Every structure is written in C-alpha cells, then in structure tokens.
Amino acid sequence: MAAPLGYDLTVQQLIPGYASLARLAVALLAASQRASLPGASVLVAGCGTGAELVEARSQRPDWQLRAIDPSAEMLAEAQQRLGPASEGINWQQTTVEGLEAQSCFAGALSVLVLQSLPDDGTKLAFLTALARSLEPGGQLVLVDLMAPDRSPLQAQVEAAWLGFQRASGLTADTEELEALTHGLHPIGRARLTALVNAAGFGDPARIFQALGYEGFLLQRLG
C-alpha cells in the first residue's frame, strides 16, 4: 500500500468525491438519534490515516471516539495527523472482530474497509461484529467500492474513472496503484443487502455514489 504520508492524496486522486467523504460520513452519523446525544461513543473502524477522526473532532468534539486499525503504521500516522486533538481518543491496534465489543457504541464509521475483505464469511463476520458493537438502533456509515451493474455503458464508466485519475494528476507508481485497486472484493447491492440483514442491520439506504464507490447508512435492528 502507498506509504501513509501520501495515502490520502493518492486516494483523493483515485476516488471521485473522496475529499468530502469523511465530512459527509460524520455529518450523517451526527444527525442520527443516538449519536446526536452529547458525549456519544463512536467507533471508527479501520481509521487509516485519520480523515474521519479529523472531521469528528471538528464537527463533534464531544464524541467519545474509539479508533481501531490493524496497521500500527496507519495508527501512528493518524495520531501524528491529529496532533493534540488525538488526546482523549481511545486508540487500539485491532480489528472489529478482535474488539469483541457488545452494544458499546451509538454509531460507527467504516470507510473503504469492507471492500478489502473476501466474501467467504469474512465480510459477514466483519459486519456482524460491527452490528454487535452498536447499541440497538445505533447506525453505521459504510463506504466501499461496489461491483458494477450489468450495463452497456459500463465501459464508458470505467474510461471516465481513468480520465478522472489523469485529470486529478495521479502520479502513484504501479506498485502503489496495484495495492490500492487490486486484491479487492467488491460486491453488488443485492449481496450487500443480504449480508447486512444477516449481520443484524436493516436494509441499506444509499447516501453517496461516485462511479463505482457507494456509501450506505445502516441501522442496527433490535
């Protein structure tokens, strides 16, 4: 993967709308019934270099944040990026499954994580752990690359993505792009709905789309 220091710039050049994703995700969660309460506990699953955490500190400095990521390098970059604002955040090098949280959080954010997990039970385990970590009625903002619909216009969409990258000045080398765009496991809308329902969420409500990238708002049932 691209070094954390250049990760955000590369992803902004790779993904349309990425620069606004963290702001949108935090604003959506902040408008939910449970996470809107003062001092709500919020989980950032796969916090990466901290984009969602920066926005959370800006929009909702009262939130009690738990930031997790399996990469020590990413956690260190996120802590450095936030500077003094990193104080008070509960940082853990772990996965959602390893966290073993039970109804702890009013809301959660997961941006560009599910896409990297194979659909061999691993996606379901991740989503189930997220649902389990939320209070009943708690919400999750999920953003990922999705499998394309069958369409005669799909070739044009893919060409537009390459054009967007060139126009954005994407300069990442081949190895970096391979790490960011390959080895992913996107799924379609129907499969996502089946998985989130099995995990304990209601049907996903789409709140963002830019070419193949889509964002969804999910609510834990019960």
Rank of each mutant, 00 (worst) to 15 (best):
E135R: 13
Q80C: 15
S151L: 06
L124V: 06
A67N: 07
H185S: 08
H182N: 09
D8P: 11
P204T: 01
Q209R: 08
A31D: 11
G6T: 15
L28Q: 14
P186M: 08
G6Q: 14
S41Y: 03
A125S: 11
L65D: 00
G83L: 10
L140M: 03
E87T: 04
K123T: 03
Q13M: 09
L124F: 02
G138P: 04
T171S: 12
Q92C: 06
R189D: 10
A108S: 07
A199R: 01
E175P: 11
A198E: 12
I89V: 15
G83K: 09
T95M: 08
L75G: 11
A3Q: 13
E73F: 05
Q115V: 07
L117Q: 14
P152I: 03
A194I: 00
L117G: 07
L21G: 11
S151I: 08
A199D: 05
V54E: 11
A155N: 14
F105W: 10
A85P: 01
A25G: 04
A155T: 13
L145D: 12
L37D: 05
A167E: 12
L43I: 00
G137S: 02
A22V: 00
L53M: 03
V54F: 08
V96R: 01
E97A: 13
T181W: 06
L153M: 13
G212W: 01
A27Q: 08
Y18Q: 15
P61A: 03
L195C: 06
L37R: 14
C47S: 04
A205T: 12
A190V: 02
L217A: 13
L82K: 11
Q80P: 08
P70S: 04
D203K: 10
P148M: 05
S110R: 00
V141C: 03
R150V: 13
S41A: 14
L134N: 01
L53Y: 08
D119H: 09
W161G: 08
P4V: 04
A35T: 02
A155C: 11
E55A: 04
A19L: 08
P84H: 07
L82E: 11
E97M: 09
I15V: 15
N90A: 15
I68A: 01
